[in-house]
Design a protein around this nucleic acid. Structure first.
Lengths: 152, 152
DNA sequence: AACAAAGTTTAGCCTTGGCAACAATTTGAA
DNA sequence: TTCAAATTGTTGCCAAGGCTAAACTTTGTT
């Protein structure tokens, strides 16, 4: 049944190396792991900057999830050393968390500005940037920056 | 404690509307839901085209996960009407599945070509495209196509 | 035909991130 | 001060997608 008419098992025209492809998908899975953490620290930093503090209820509102979900994630981020908080008090970022937030905001900025420079409407650019930002490499980010500079 | 020195609760400078932001994040979550299905039908279509058939073991190799994981996902895709298969036999796509695969491959092509046209190295372009493709809107895709055409 | 190898399925476990419902604490207003 | 409202935390549920180990089927060789 296998190879249906082919005698050469290595005849996999049009397909890349399996190991290579596996590494790509692995990278995407790792990005997904980090995504929640990145979104949370980024929003916490924004809220602290804009409102003086970040509360569970704010995060729940802005993410569009229940406060129970937010709380569960916060427990994890605390365990991982990104967030530091006391029971029933507002949320703070550790130094590591602040660092991550800074890098994420910068990356978000670049992706958003790039899409805008490309002529995408602001609403769509924001929506797309939110999903895309977690999956762009440094190399691509640099190319985005160059494009923005050229098209200013 | 709230608003720390602010008297106006609506003074949320620098932050977008919470409902708007919630919609963005919701869109990303929905994209994640669809991502696995899209990756699977795309790869199944590729394997059928290149090798005549798609088997669980091939998917496991190329995704870099165990065959048990692949099987579990296949059960779900079957339940959702994208994949049709008999026990211990190779995998097939339903018409719906073929349709989805076609659209995904086209989108992948556009994102990849766009990154290449931007000057990204092939290896990075492939890796980034794999993550980015699930998060680009039709509007952005159109802009990508235009850019590719202009820079051909 | 029999058997070993390869491939597939099943079972059981884990983590993440959803939810609702209920418990606990803090805050603000009478 | 007291008490209700708002906020936060806890518990228990679910689905998805990871894994290993073990059972089952198919395939190919001897």
């Amino acid at each position: 049944m296998a190879d249906e008419g082919f005698s050469d098992k290595n005849l996999t025209e049009g397909l890349v190396d399996p190991g290579q492809q596996a590494r790509w998908f692995n990278r995407v899975r790792e990005a997904h792991q980090a995504e929640t953490a990145e979104d949370y620290v980024e929003l916490i930093a924004d809220l602290i900057e804009a409102q003086g503090e970040a509360r569970v209820v704010d995060l729940a509102n802005r993410f569009g999830v229940s406060h129970a979900t937010v709380n569960k994630v916060i427990v994890r981020l605390n365990r991982e050393g990104l967030v530091s908080n006391q029971p029933y008090r507002s949320l703070f970022l550790t130094e590591t968390g602040k660092d991550l937030a800074r890098r994420c905001k910068e990356r978000h900025r670049v992706v958003l500005d790039f899409l805008l420079a490309l002529g995408i409407s602001p609403a769509t650019a924001e929506a797309d940037a939110e999903g895309v930002e977690h999956h762009v490499s440094e190399e691509t980010l640099t190319a985005f920056r160059n494009f923005i500079a050229r098209n200013r």
